[in-house]
Design a protein around this nucleic acid. Structure first.
Lengths: 332, 332
DNA sequence: TTGTAGGCGTTATCAC
DNA sequence: GTGATAACGCCTACAA
């Protein structure tokens, strides 16, 4: 296997010592212009490229690679997040290695191990909902890391989150303002911290309006569009729901499917924007936040840590906004 | 900086030689069970993790990292592609480093350089439309690589493509079957090879139906939704278009916007599926292909190359399918 | 300003 | 079956 020219080859070709080539490659200034020119030519002639992997094992040097572990790169939510991270870290000269855990704890752990073996300088992680070993027991301890979209356990480490409770509350408030009194909550498992927070915001808004929480209107078992569609059908037909709070975008899309199937709709507000929320009829109102920005903030926090700095906050909570588009209205 | 325990540390702790630890870590079988157990304990106690970066500089060893360079990770098209690649390469034990070029030739080149310095074993690339240095002049030559969604220049290398011409032709044929005689083509620059191929398929279908190509019905200047919406308005108002072939999904979404704005629609077929094409009214008919599969095929081709094999074809053309949903019909 | 010697963590060679 | 020793490509003392 051809491993390409090394610094030694360049040094020989330029009739210079190894060290001088090293200096040249690393941009040192104190080099005789004559030698520099000879080296430059040799580099071009040989097609030399430095070997960062070799350089990185020297003391004081690092890989300048970061790892990003998310649930599923194919999910627009995560890919937007990844894009935000990527932009930030590339700007600072880091390479980003991305991997999907599929929300599988074991897979997640394997990916972390693999990245640590590759000696990434830091990690940005969206941990799976369940499974995976507890970090505090990890030997050796993880390198600098930042959690995204999930709270760090007991403040052990840094995390960046959206204001899920506030967002859910404002979604619920909008539906209440339309006169709804039986607002259904459709979402994924409560074990997912964001879901728990959204549920909490929903309840707080109901209670603040003097309404009781009717558990028959709460469905936490929705993992797919189809399940959501079925859930919404049931909530409307059997439990007298008069408005829907869809706690994630799969739930929202499912609700839209259910509306279409029965040829009638009720007021709807979703959480997390989706590509063509504006194209539905009526356009779908959602609580949304800037996911790419969340990624950028997480990356910024990690880079601060890597620079030896101390981020301003352990937990950064990012604001959410209500995108009013019409679907929250009773009449169109 | 703490660099973590090394094999030497483990060897000392286990009272074994360095080489034996190496054997153990690499899964060699011929080790005295007693020693193996001592090593196992030492590894656990010290929290040893092997350093793949160090291992990779040895002759005959590689980084087991691959690079993926795409246009924009935030674009669902690319992230789906990335996901397909990821799945395939992870299965084979490779780590994937992903980066977005933003269709910028210089940035693209820099990313390639960076990845080569990091010594990736191979590259999967979606080259930018314009700019970027010609590869054949690259010194040293690139490692094994596969192009996706863009043809390899002059058969120099491997590539995986969708059957753009055939897809565009069948889209056009469907609109013709509806009785349309002035089908507009709305798409991005012809410099993009996929666009050129789609344009070609469109023309072939028209000619086969005995129609002439009216250049006033062809708009190649559409880069965004908004531009597409404007273009469709003009084509309908000023040039008497009676059907729209939207040659990418931005164009399709723009056409839908235009329809909404004027309160009337004409038959429409898009190219490339989009998240909620089924949610529009009527649902949008598109020519689509399995992007994740395209990524997986590209990854498979690259892995074959890395294994020293010879892929079956230099250029793999993947089939496309027409997803009939209703928007191609004249009346709903 | 330049060069020499040594070590980073790992694996391969080849004796024992 | 095991272990000294020598690379791999690079960079940093330190000496010249």
């Amino acid at each position: 296997m051809n491993r390409g020219p090394t610094m030694v080859d360049v040094a020989e070709a330029a009739s210079v010592s190894l060290k001088t080539v090293s200096r040249y490659i690393n941009g040192a200034t104190n080099i005789d212009p004559k030698l520099a020119e000879r080296i430059r030519e040799a580099v071009l002639a040989l097609g030399y490229r430095r070997n960062l992997a070799a350089a990185s094992i020297r003391p004081g040097w690092t890989s300048r690679m970061l790892g990003l572990i998310i649930g599923d790169l194919g999910n627009p939510y995560y890919s937007t997040l990844a894009r935000g991270v990527e932009r930030e870290v590339h700007e600072r000269g880091y390479l980003l290695t991305t991997a999907s855990s599929d929300e599988n704890g074991q897979r997640h752990d394997e990916l972390i191990d693999r990245m640590l073996e590759q000696r990434v300088d830091g990690l940005i992680i969206v941990p799976p909902y369940t499974g995976g070993r507890p970090w505090n027991e990890l030997r050796p301890p993880l390198p600098p890391r930042v959690l995204v979209d999930r709270p760090a356990p007991e403040g052990d480490g840094y995390s960046v989150l959206a204001d899920n409770a506030r967002g859910a509350a404002s979604a619920t408030e909008v539906l209440l303002a339309e006169g709804a009194t039986r607002i259904a909550f459709v979402g994924d498992s409560e074990l997912i911290s964001t879901m728990a927070e959204r549920r909490q915001g929903y309840e707080e808004a109901l209670l603040a309006a003097g309404l009781e929480v009717d558990l028959s209107l709460v469905d936490h078992g929705v993992h797919t569009d189809e399940q959501a569609a079925g859930a919404v059908q049931r909530l409307l037909d059997d439990h007298g729901a008069d408005a829907i709070f869809a706690a994630n975008n799969r739930a929202a899309i499912g609700a839209l499917r259910a509306f279409r199937a029965r040829g009638a709709r009720v007021p709807l507000v979703g959480f997390d924007d989706f590509e063509s929320a504006e194209l539905t009829s009526p356009p779908t109102t959602v609580v949304s936040h800037d996911i790419a920005h969340m990624g950028a903030v997480a990356a910024g926090t990690l880079l601060t840590l890597l620079d030896g700095g101390v981020p301003a906050e352990q937990t950064t909570v990012l604001p959410v906004t209500l995108q009013r588009r019409g679907s929250e209205l009773r009449v169109q």
